[in-house]
Amino acid sequence: MKKYKITVYDEKTGEKHTIEIEMSEEELEELAKKLAEKHNVKVRIEKV
Rank of each mutant, 00 (worst) to 15 (best):
E25C: 09
E27K: 07
K2A: 15
E29Q: 13
I45E: 01
L31N: 01
I45P: 02
D10P: 00
I19T: 04
V48F: 00
K16G: 09
T18H: 05
E37W: 01
K42V: 14
I21Q: 04
L28M: 14
I19N: 01
E29L: 12
V48L: 06
Y4C: 04
K3W: 11
E22L: 10
K42L: 08
N40W: 05
Y4V: 08
V48Y: 00
E27G: 12
K38N: 15
H17P: 00
E30K: 12
E22A: 07
Y4R: 03
G14C: 07
A36L: 13
K38S: 13
E15G: 04
K12C: 14
E15C: 08
T18G: 02
M23F: 05
I45W: 05
Y9C: 07
I6S: 00
T18R: 02
T7V: 07
T13H: 03
I45M: 03
K38P: 06
K47L: 15
E25D: 12
L28N: 02
E11S: 05
M23Q: 02
K3E: 02
A36T: 12
I21H: 02
S24L: 13
V41R: 07
K2T: 13
V41T: 10
I6R: 00
K47G: 11
I45K: 01
K12E: 12
A32D: 03
K47C: 12
V43Y: 00
K12H: 12
V48N: 04
I6T: 00
L31A: 03
V48G: 04
K3T: 05
H39W: 01
T13P: 00
H17S: 09
H39A: 13
D10N: 14
G14N: 05
Y4L: 03
M1P: 08
K33S: 10
K34E: 07
V8S: 02
S24F: 12
N40P: 04
N40E: 06
K2V: 14
I6W: 00
K5Y: 13
E25Y: 11
E15Y: 10
R44M: 14
E29F: 14
A36F: 12
E20R: 04
H39C: 09
K34G: 07
K3P: 01
V48H: 06
E26K: 09
K3V: 06
S24D: 13
V43R: 00
H17E: 06
T13G: 03
E15M: 12
H17M: 13
E25K: 06
S24Q: 08
T18E: 08
M23A: 13
D10G: 01
T13K: 03
E11I: 07
D10T: 01
E26G: 10
E30H: 11
E25F: 08
K3L: 07
I6Q: 00
V8K: 00
I19W: 15
A32K: 12
T13Y: 02
K16M: 14
K5R: 15
E27F: 07
A32F: 14
K3C: 07
E26T: 13
E46A: 05
L31F: 13
V48C: 05
E46M: 01
M23V: 13
K42P: 04
E27V: 05
K3R: 12
K5C: 10
A32E: 10
E26I: 09
E20C: 12
T7K: 02
K3G: 01
I6K: 00
E22D: 06
E20D: 05
I45Q: 01
I21N: 01
I19Y: 14
K42F: 01
I21S: 03
V43K: 01
V43H: 03
K16A: 14
T7W: 05
K33I: 09
K2N: 15
I19F: 15
G14Q: 05
G14V: 00
K38V: 10
Y4P: 01
E37R: 07
G14Y: 02
E46K: 05
E37T: 11
K3A: 04
R44Y: 07
K47P: 14
H39F: 03
D10Q: 02
V43E: 02
I6F: 02
E37S: 11
K2Y: 13
K2S: 15
A32C: 14
L31T: 05
K47H: 15
V8R: 00
L28K: 03
H39T: 11
K5A: 06
E15A: 09
T13Q: 01
T7G: 00
K38A: 09
K5H: 08
V41P: 03
K5T: 09
A36I: 10
A36C: 12
E11K: 09
G14M: 04
V8I: 14
L28T: 04
A36N: 09
Y4M: 04
A36V: 09
S24H: 13
K3F: 06
S24P: 08
R44Q: 12
K42D: 06
K33F: 04
K33P: 02
K12F: 13
G14T: 02
E37N: 10
K16L: 14
K12I: 15
E25W: 10
H39D: 11
K42H: 10
K34M: 11
T13V: 02
L35R: 00
K5E: 06
K42Q: 10
G14A: 03
M23N: 01
T18N: 03
E30Q: 13
K33N: 08
E27P: 02
L31S: 01
T7F: 07
I19R: 03
V8D: 00
E20T: 12
V41C: 10
K38Q: 13
G14L: 04
E22R: 05
E22C: 14
E11Y: 09
L31V: 08
Y4A: 04
E26C: 12
K5M: 10
K47R: 13
M23T: 08
E22W: 12
G14P: 00
E27I: 05
I19E: 03
M1H: 12
R44G: 05
E22K: 04
T7N: 02
K47D: 13
A32S: 10
H39Q: 09
E15T: 13
I21C: 09
L35M: 08
M23D: 01
Y9L: 10
E22G: 02
V43P: 03
L28E: 03
E25T: 06
E11G: 04
T7D: 04
L28G: 04
V48D: 05
K33Q: 12
I6M: 03
L35Q: 01
E46P: 01
E20G: 01
E27A: 12
K5S: 06
S24E: 10
E27L: 09
T18P: 00
I45L: 04
E30F: 11
Y4I: 07
L31E: 02
D10S: 03
K16T: 15
T13N: 04
K47A: 15
Y9M: 06
L35A: 02
A36Y: 09
T18V: 14
E27D: 11
K38G: 12
H17W: 14
E37M: 07
K42M: 04
E30W: 08
H39G: 15
I45F: 04
E46G: 03
E26H: 13
D10R: 00
K5I: 15
K42S: 13
T13M: 03
L28S: 05
K12T: 12
E15F: 09
Y9R: 03
E29Y: 14
V43D: 01
T18Y: 09
T13R: 02
S24T: 13
K42G: 05
K16N: 09
I21W: 04
N40A: 07
E25R: 08
V48M: 08
S24G: 11
D10K: 02
I45A: 02
Y9S: 04
H17N: 06
E25N: 06
V41W: 07
A36D: 05
K34L: 11
V41A: 08
L35S: 02
E30L: 12
K47I: 15
H39L: 10
N40Q: 06
A36M: 14
E25Q: 12
K42A: 06
I6V: 09
I6D: 00
I19D: 01
H39V: 11
E30V: 14
T18K: 03
H39S: 12
I19L: 07
T7M: 06
Y9D: 02
L31H: 04
E26D: 13
V8F: 14
T13E: 02
H39M: 07
E15D: 07
E26M: 11
E29D: 11
I45D: 01
S24M: 13
I21V: 14
G14R: 05
K5W: 13
T18C: 09
T13W: 03
L31Y: 14
H17L: 09
I21F: 06
V8Q: 02
M23S: 07
E15I: 14
V41M: 12
R44I: 15
K47N: 13
E26A: 11
H17Q: 07
A36G: 12
D10W: 07
I21T: 04
K47T: 15
E46H: 04
K38E: 09
V8N: 00
E30C: 06
Y4N: 01
T18M: 07
K47Q: 15
V8G: 00
K16R: 11
E25I: 08
L28D: 00
K34F: 08
K16Q: 15
D10C: 12
M1D: 09
A36Q: 11
K38F: 07
T13F: 03
L31M: 09
H39P: 15
M23P: 00
A32Q: 10
K33R: 11
K2D: 15
I6E: 00
K16F: 14
E20S: 05
E46C: 08
E22V: 09
E26S: 11
E29V: 11
K33A: 10
Y4W: 10
V41Y: 04
M1S: 12
E27M: 09
E25S: 08
A32R: 14
V48P: 04
G14E: 02
E27T: 08
E29P: 05
R44A: 07
E20I: 14
I21P: 00
A32L: 15
R44T: 15
A36R: 13
E22I: 12
T13D: 02
A32Y: 12
R44L: 15
K16C: 12
K33Y: 03
V8M: 07
L28R: 02
E37H: 06
E26N: 12
K16V: 15
Y4T: 02
E25A: 06
V8W: 14
T18Q: 05
E15N: 08
G14W: 02
V43N: 01
E26Y: 11
A32M: 13
K33E: 06
K3Q: 04
K34N: 10
K2F: 14
I6G: 00
R44P: 01
K2M: 10
E20K: 04
E25L: 09
V43S: 02
V43M: 01
